[in-house]
Computed example of a mutant assay.
Amino acid sequence: MTAQSDAPIGPGSPDANPAPVGFIGLGNMGAPIAKQLLAWAGGLVVCDVRAEATEPFVAEGATAAATADEVARTARLISVTVLNDEQVRDVVDGPQGILRTAAPGTVIAVHSTISDSTAVELAEVCAAAGVHLIDAPVSGGAQGAESGELAVMVGGPREVYDACKPAFKLWAGMPVHAGEVGAGTRMKLARNLLHFISFTATAEASRLAEAAGIDIAKLGRVVRHTDAITGGAGAVMLRDTTAPIAEDDFWHGVFTHVRGLGEKDLSLALGLADRLDVDLPLGTIALRDLGAGFGVGPGEIALASSVGAGTGSPGDDDDDNSATSGEKES
């Protein structure tokens, strides 16, 4: 049964006597995020299982709390950055959890990467007490946390997102409303799928370079330099659907060109790997699936290639950033 409440949502406007915000979990990500919240006009309440972790915040004017329910006595937006689903459940609904004392209208923002089903389940439990739980995982790593430039992907009702946004903007360079509760986590999982597949691809590329006698540290410098220019994998994430592209669509020409460049380079890399006896399973999949992933289908090189062998023609040597060029033209 969902409790109905007309209580204001969250900590209120930063310009109109706002309530305190709380932060639970002051680890490698939590501490630098919480540091940015010292600027919140309503004050900051911090909590960590390690009492010493709260001391630098108290020295800067924050209030320390020993338990989550103590945080919720005053804070009306409570960020949670702990290790896993079990710890989130305990912080939210445990014997000394937030729900023991939270007033109606309080918002719990879970920044930990947990299961989307855990977020949905806990949101339903919280709703019965008139409390809002949103899943709000972050991306950008420790560097983004230190600089206040993280992306935060929020799953929850739009009005709850809007109520939290002023506080989030103190530490997030890109707040995004992903959709209903659970959608923030689903967006984070998709983002990290790309992240860690690319790490695996990095290892594959390094094996090829090492076998070819290339200094892989120098290769890494080249990759970081050029990705900073082109945007890396995100540079081709330009459409709002993964459906096939009609031939008369602007993007068809853009991605057909990118597919041609990609298939050429992948076939050459696979050919080199074949000569050096280096296994490139991700490279083989990429050659097979690149065109389909772009929505334009496989090109001539992919169609002509056999599994595990790169036999394509070198073709056009134009290595410009076609997706970026297409974006400018649109």
Rank of each mutant, 00 (worst) to 15 (best):
G140N: 08
S5F: 13
L170W: 06
L270R: 14
G42W: 03
S267R: 08
G130W: 11
A145M: 06
K328M: 15
A228E: 14
T2K: 14
R207K: 02
V71K: 07
P104H: 10
M174Y: 13
A109Y: 00
L268I: 15
K218D: 12
C47D: 12
F168P: 06
V152A: 12
T67I: 03
R288S: 05
P18V: 12
I33W: 07
G262W: 03
I301P: 13
G10M: 01
A205F: 00
E124Y: 00
A127Q: 13
V110R: 07
G144F: 12
I216S: 08
E55P: 03
L266C: 07
D320N: 14
K35I: 05
L261H: 00
T256M: 01
A41W: 02
G30V: 12
Q87R: 15
W40T: 05
H252C: 00
R158F: 08
L38P: 11
N84K: 11
I78M: 01
P137R: 13
L287K: 08
L238R: 15
A292K: 02
G43D: 08
K165L: 11
T101M: 10
G262H: 15
G140R: 12
A151F: 12
A246K: 11
K35M: 01
T54E: 08
G130M: 09
A53V: 01
A75V: 00
I114F: 03
A309M: 04
A167S: 07
A19M: 13
V49P: 00
A103C: 04
R224L: 15
D317V: 06
L26C: 03
K218C: 04
V254S: 09
G271V: 08
